[in-house]
Amino acid sequence: MIAIIDYGMGNIHSVNKALQLFSAKTVITNKPEDILNCEKAVLPGVGAFDDAMQELEKQGLVEPIKKHVAAGKPFLGICLGMQLLFEKSQEAKEARGLGIFKGGVVKFKAAKGLKVPHMGWNQLKKCQMSDVKCQNGCPLLKNIPDNAFVYFCHSYYPDPKDKQVIAGVTEYGGSFASLVWQENVFGAQFHPEKSQSIGLKILENFVKLC
């Protein structure tokens, strides 16, 4: 069973339906026990960083998410849901993130014709690093061609402290981490549930993780 965490911030229907295409059993939920009991969990999200953290706290979901991750179960954050996995964001001075990934979330600087938000289809470049884990490739990118197009719609992006967690980068006024991965935790700045066949393949890879 995959828990899709519904904390009132953003679209859950597309990701739910997409996971079901690959025979995943899903539950849309804001119950702590569901998050703890499910084998996998997805944290979507649209909105402001501090509002989202407030909702997670108010609904008692911070600890269940951390426990789920600590238990080594696969976890996927999408867009704002990915940003919340970091320690902090330039968007929110006060609110602290979940801190599962070290580092913060920063804003694109509009300069030299760089339009902000970063909006549309851009390429996901697979990260080839010397680290053994990265050489084997992120399991979510299995059978995904290098430089595949995925859909972005955001003004902020993650800046991981530990560069080893970067599993994919995208060029936009320089390159930024568009896919992060640390053991059982994955975070996508793009929207796999809105990225047509490539995005569906990435979600299928998540469903098939053991």
Binding site: Y151, S195, Q196
Partner: peptide, 11 residues
Amino acid sequence: VEEIAKNIFMP
């Protein structure tokens, strides 16, 4: 909109 979101995987 919900129905559309369940049927297409694009923005």
